[in-house]
């Protein structure tokens, strides 16, 4: 069971206090998009065996959505960041790069 820290309220708690929300940074296309674009938005997910940027919600805490960079196999957490950030902050990317370089 993961230990997760909420970037808003600062609480570090068990995974069961949070709810997962799938892959992060998926752009929702407008109603003029093609069927293929819409289908990709609805159904296509990366599901990597690697670092995964994903959405979580502090469901049984402050209720806020946030982003987390987590390796899906080693379960290492490289950091959490705000839900309104369109990409992971540099410091988290540095941490991921440093691990990959090992």
């Amino acid at each position: 069971m993961l230990l997760i820290q909420c970037p808003y309220c600062g609480v570090e708690a068990e995974e069961t206090e949070f709810a997962p929300g799938g892959e992060a940074h998926i752009l929702r296309p407008g109603p003029d998009c093609t069927d293929a674009e819409w289908s990709a938005y609805l159904f296509e997910r990366k599901n990597p065996r690697a670092v995964h940027h994903e959405r979580w919600r502090h469901a049984f805490g402050c209720g806020k959505w946030f982003h987390m960079a987590r390796h899906t196999h080693t379960l290492e957490v490289f950091g959490v960041y705000r839900a309104d950030e369109a990409e992971p902050p540099q410091e988290i990317r540095d941490r991921i790069d440093a691990r990959a370089a090992l």
């Binding site: 929300g21 929702r28 959405r55 919600r57 469901a59 209720g63 806020k64 959505w65 839900a83 309104d84």
Partner: peptide, 13 residues
């Protein structure tokens, strides 16, 4: 309610 919050917080903040 969770649905409203999800859209407000993650898409239309």
């Amino acid at each position: 309610h969770a649905w409203f919050e999800e859209w407000l917080q993650t898409e239309w903040f």
